[in-house]
């Protein structure tokens, strides 16, 4: 899909195209009210884009940390519709950065594609990422995304090989580069030859190129920022949040817990 001259809401809300910090949180973990406040805390901690996860019973691309977060959220009755409805609450409290809704495809199919895109639009959600839809199966989603002005975020992996160019050239919003093969989750070491992969991706992409999967230390953040336009951090952030689980659930203890979350996140990414 070529870039049109009319800016999408994603492009309008994105303040810079380099040195991006893209955190991932799970809707409803530890509670819906806490998710709203955590979004704002992450914005204060320097987040440039928020990736908001929708819990799913069978998250194939996720490691144990995000699986468990999804499990906790599902126990609280969180679902796609309620995830979407959290965003206007974030906006009314001052969230200005673009929001990417992250959901597996099966809940989307049950929701209905057209209904989903209409609701994303109406709820100020700027982009959609479906981790179990590769390029070949994305035609229908792309058509709706274009029609409703929502960016569809694509993933590209080190083993995408011949597909890298195709995926990168068609990318909208930002391009999500998987750092190494496997599922989400912290890794002690990131692949050594990632720089040549990222160079290749960047040569074909007209949107920011961000790296995710396994980034969990300040050192890794800085290393990855050298080779890319930004970092996506999921499991590590979920772990930080889970460290204050009970305090975040409690309305009275929440403000001080959010301060501690902010401090840890700033130390991670600054």
């Amino acid at each position: 899909m070529s870039k049109s001259t009319v800016q999408t809401s994603f492009e309008q809300r994105l303040q810079k195209e380099k040195d991006l910090f893209i955190p991932f949180i799970m809707s409803g973990d530890p509670s819906p009210a806490a998710t709203v406040e955590l979004a704002l805390t992450l914005q204060e901690s320097g987040a440039d884009i928020l990736e908001l996860g929708v819990p799913y019973s069978d998250p194939l691309a996720d490691g144990p940390t995000i699986q468990e977060a999804a499990g906790r959220a599902l126990q609280h009755g969180m679902n796609l519709k309620e995830s979407i409805e959290l965003v206007p609450k974030m906006r009314s409290k001052g969230l200005e950065i673009p929001v990417v809704l992250f959901t597996y495809y099966n809940p989307v199919l049950q929701y209905g594609l057209e209904q989903l895109f209409q609701d994303l639009r109406e709820h100020d959600i700027d982009a959609l990422l479906v981790p179990d839809i590769p390029l070949e199966e994305s035609v229908e989603l792309k058509e709706y995304a274009h029609e409703f002005g929502v960016e569809l975020i694509s993933l590209v992996a080190p083993n995408s090989e011949a597909r890298i160019r195709k995926i990168a050239e068609q990318a909208t919003g930002f391009l999500y580069c998987v750092s190494s093969l496997g599922v989400t989750g912290e890794r002690k070491e990131l692949s050594q030859d990632i720089s040549s992969f990222l160079e290749k991706v960047k040569s074909y992409s007209s949107v920011p190129v961000a790296v995710g999967f396994g980034i969990s230390t300040n050192e890794q953040v800085h290393l990855m920022k050298q080779y890319s336009d930004g970092v996506i951090i999921g499991s590590k952030i979920i772990k930080v949040i889970n460290g204050y689980h009970d305090e975040l659930v409690s309305e009275s203890a929440r403000p001080s817990a959010l301060k501690k979350v902010k401090q840890e996140i700033v130390e991670l990414v600054q």
Partner: peptide, 18 residues
């Protein structure tokens, strides 16, 4: 594309395509 009518296909993360 691995489709039996509308069923089948490859609804997997990008890392599995290779």
């Amino acid at each position: 594309r691995g489709r039996f009518g509308e069923y089948g296909g490859q609804f997997v993360p990008e890392t599995l395509m290779a």
